[in-house]
């Protein structure tokens, strides 16, 4: 998996990520701050796999370990927009 340097789809906003996560968690988006720990909020591995699948099918490059390393809306938006991947390759 490499950083997205191609143009690709339009940039994903934190609000879009927030709304997607809120729908999966069945909570109001207002409860999810940019830096809210999504695991603490109840996001489990299966839902994360589902989200990973959804974003992959929409054409985004997404990596489950990266999502789990920093489970926040802010970090996820950065990752989906081709931001750097922490940790070993």
């Amino acid at each position: 998996m490499t950083d997205g340097t191609d143009p690709g789809p339009a940039a994903v906003t934190t609000d879009e990520v927030r709304n997607t996560v809120a729908a999966v968690l069945k909570v109001a988006p207002g409860r999810i701050g940019d830096d809210t720990d999504l695991v603490e909020l109840g996001l489990d591995s299966l839902r994360m796999m589902r989200l990973t699948g959804r974003w992959r099918r929409s054409g985004l490059t997404v990596d489950f370990p990266t999502l789990t390393a920093e489970p926040t809306v802010r970090a996820w938006a950065r990752h989906l927009n081709g931001g750097g991947r922490p940790g070993p390759g």
């Binding site: 994360m48 489950f64 370990p65």
Partner: peptide, 13 residues
């Protein structure tokens, strides 16, 4: 830990 299942997915990977 709430992260156990997530960790298990990564561990399997």
């Amino acid at each position: 830990d709430p992260r156990d299942l997530i960790a298990s997915v990564n561990r399997f990977g």
